[in-house]
């Protein structure tokens, strides 16, 4: 076997590494650090965090973000398992590609445009409101747009797509003989799910749920366009601090809180993936 020419492969990695360090890692570390400072005062301080916990508008925004992300994750999970099962075990391979494309394609287009198009459907004057009035026969208003549930709805659809995709990609790799063996041993569809498919597709579900949680907890467009501005989520507050008062340390504090929330919620999930991988 010829020996590879002597070149330092580091050269290939260098551009990506410089970019990642200079425009991703350092900015985030700097932002985390900035949250520990305040204007007109030297040294590190926790004053921003005290302010955060002291202000109801800020803690409420955090709770709303959490409620939003958790509801989205639950809804996505409830839909994703049956949908992934359908795609993985109930349709032919050719059809599967087409169905996956149908499910994923709308999400290639801009998040903003999708959120806005839901505005038209969910508004009281939109399709949903008109349909409700027609069914009810009286002038009732839907009152759904500009509420937290409307944000859950908008992001929930995205979550369903993502988690379905991830669970599905784990499910298709399952060796069919395991399922046949389950049937030979007298198992039903339900035991096949519980004993074979569920444990093997769990890593896909965890990754899908983690990514969905991250998007939902940090999204700004859907909560603004569908949730409205009266009861903002953390991302909306963060933006108004940044663009409104230019209080960079406070914006950095809100960003750091978001980082911590994500680490606290997602890290255990990822450790779980590691655990399941090691077992199998």
């Amino acid at each position: 076997m010829p020996r590879p020419p002597v070149t330092n492969l580091w050269q290939g990695i260098l551009p990506a590494m410089v970019l990642m360090a200079g425009f991703f890692l350092l900015p985030i570390l700097y932002t985390l650090g900035l949250s520990l400072t305040t204007e007109g005062q030297a040294g590190l301080t926790l004053v921003n965090y005290h302010r955060f916990w002291g202000e109801d508008t800020l803690t409420d925004a955090l709770l709303r973000s959490l409620a939003l992300a958790l509801s989205v994750v639950v809804i996505a999970t409830l839909f994703a398992w049956p949908l992934a099962w359908y795609l993985a075990f109930c349709v032919s391979e050719r059809r599967r590609v087409l169905l996956l494309l149908i499910l994923v394609a709308p999400f290639w287009t801009s998040f903003t445009i999708r959120a806005f198009s839901w505005q038209m459907v969910l508004a009281d004057s939109g399709i949903a409101g008109t349909a409700l009035r027609w069914v009810a026969g009286t002038d009732v208003s839907l009152g759904f747009l500009y509420s937290l549930p409307a944000s859950v709805f908008g992001l929930g659809l995205f979550g369903i797509m993502l988690v379905t995709l991830m669970v599905y990609s784990s499910m298709v790799t399952i060796d069919r003989r395991l399922i046949e063996a389950n049937a030979v041993l007298g198992g039903t569809g339900w035991t096949a799910f519980r004993e074979v498919v569920l444990p093997l597709a769990l890593p896909g579900w965890i990754i899908g749920v983690a990514l969905t949680f991250i998007v939902a907890v940090g999204d700004y467009a859907v909560p603004t366009l569908l949730g409205g501005g009266l009861r903002p989520v953390l991302a909306q507050v963060m933006l108004s601090v940044l663009k409104g008062t230019y209080d960079l340390p406070m914006a950095a504090t809100l960003a750091s809180v978001l980082v911590m929330v994500i680490l606290l919620c997602v890290a255990p999930l990822l450790l779980l993936v590691r655990g399941t991988r090691l077992q199998s």
């Binding site: 425009f23 950095a252 960003a255």
Partner: peptide, 15 residues
């Protein structure tokens, strides 16, 4: 992939 875009945007703006 595992960091919300908003965070990347804010951190970059501050940086």
């Amino acid at each position: 992939l595992a960091v919300p875009l908003l965070l990347v945007g804010i951190a970059l703006r501050i940086w």
